[in-house]
Simulated scan of single mutants.
Amino acid sequence: MTATPPGGLTPDEFRQTLGRFASGVTVITATDGTQRRGMTANAFVSVSLTPPLILVSVDVRAHMHALLAEENVTHFGVNVLSSTQRHLSEHFAGKLGPEEQVPWFEHEGLPLLGGAVAQLVCRRHQAIAAGDHTLYLGFVEYARYTDDDPLVYFRGQYHELG
């Protein structure tokens, strides 16, 4: 077990505690113009209605972090996965399955995932260093949604509503 930092929790204690917060599952998508990438993220939150801002937290070691830090990458997508898309969450979390099973489509050149409960197209608004992650604020320029059920993550496991 990792030693407790002065005045704080160990990473394992923190992870176990926050695992009690049920969250939806998203895949963040972006492209550098030649290669499209996706990353599973449940650290996603609405920030503001006016202007429409969201926030996603990205580990500094992630490939997505390097991509979003590129100056020519100005937009990213947020795909809220449906209850039938667990395989996509696992695929973009590093348990790679067949790429042909990824339902890619593009909106004005930005890769998004078909079948998601919601898709947002965001212009990178601000990047804020926060420990071992960077918080990316996105200005939402486009959104679409369905009434399908979302994929839910709780205590380290996938769940469905109902």
Rank of each mutant, 00 (worst) to 15 (best):
T2H: 12
T2A: 03
A3V: 00
T4S: 10
P5D: 02
P5E: 03
P6A: 09
G7P: 08
G8L: 14
L9W: 11
T10Y: 02
T10C: 06
P11D: 04
D12A: 12
D12P: 06
E13F: 02
F14D: 01
R15K: 13
Q16E: 12
Q16P: 06
T17E: 06
T17H: 11
L18H: 15
L18A: 09
G19D: 04
R20Y: 13
F21A: 06
F21R: 05
A22R: 13
A22V: 13
A22P: 13
A22Y: 11
S23T: 14
G24E: 05
G24I: 08
V25P: 09
V25S: 06
V25C: 10
V27Q: 04
I28C: 06
T29V: 07
T29C: 07
A30E: 00
T31A: 02
D32P: 04
D32N: 09
G33I: 04
G33H: 10
T34Q: 15
Q35H: 11
R37F: 03
G38R: 04
M39K: 02
M39V: 13
M39P: 08
T40D: 13
T40W: 14
A41P: 12
N42E: 08
N42A: 05
A43Q: 07
F44W: 04
V47H: 10
S48Y: 04
L49I: 10
L49E: 12
P51L: 03
L53H: 05
L53P: 09
I54V: 14
I54H: 01
L55G: 03
L55Q: 01
V56H: 02
V56R: 03
S57C: 15
S57P: 13
V58W: 01
D59Q: 11
D59T: 10
R61T: 15
R61M: 02
R61N: 15
R61G: 05
A62R: 05
A62P: 06
H63T: 06
M64L: 04
H65S: 13
H65C: 08
H65G: 05
A66R: 06
L67F: 01
L67M: 11
L68A: 02
A69P: 00
A69C: 12
E70L: 12
E70P: 12
E71L: 02
E71N: 06
N72H: 15
V73P: 10
V73W: 01
T74A: 06
T74Y: 00
H75V: 10
G77H: 04
N79H: 12
N79F: 12
N79Y: 13
